[in-house]
Amino acid sequence: MLEARNLSKKYGNTDALQDLNLKVGQGEVYCLLGQNGAGKTTTINIFLGLISPSGGTALIDGVEAGRKGRTNHLIAYIPEVVQLYGNMSGLENLDFFSRLSGHKHSQQQLGSLLLKAGLKEEEHRKKLSFYSKGMRQKVGIAIALSKEAKVIFMDEPTSGLDPKATNEFTVICKELANENKTIFMATHDIFNAVNVGDKIGIMKEGRLIQSSDTTTINAHELQELYLKTI
């Protein structure tokens, strides 16, 4: 579903990404670990079509990413902090972004999506400016669901969430994977990565230096490997 072929990105003389090669199958959860500046967000931004690669190719379902929005209908995105419109409610934001992606849902369907994402019904009509970070993440998930995207990119989605919210988020990610959604997640949370991921990659200075299957490694081993690698 996702494939990076010799993907690289330069900012001036700085290599933000160098010869990245990876493949993620449909319904798989791929977690990318690495320090700040390792190239995780750059990788995601290239797949999202927000920046162009300096070299190589990023493919989504066999289509090159970023070419005039040709892959936009396939993807959704949940950033570290889901920034939406503060003067609209969660329901209105969901309605807005789903229409923006060309999907039209009834109010009932939108409510169901928010419930599925874990947002309680009484919160649906509150202005987003009153939402906590966790609640915003849930609206972000509902937006991704509303778009019926095949691939969901997540950039440090559990950063700053309390343990309960992180757990809820992990559960939702697993449900999405069960629904055959591909998830590509950049994270610092090793335990969550092992918990939710099928594959884990470790990046350093723009290079993918380690790639593992979570069936062959536990959280403790991964932590040791991570610390040794970086």
Partner: peptide, 18 residues
Amino acid sequence: ETGTWKMVSVMTRSNLKF
């Protein structure tokens, strides 16, 4: 500046149209 542009760019096919 408020951080919604990235979300908009991913959701819409045409930023210009938006």
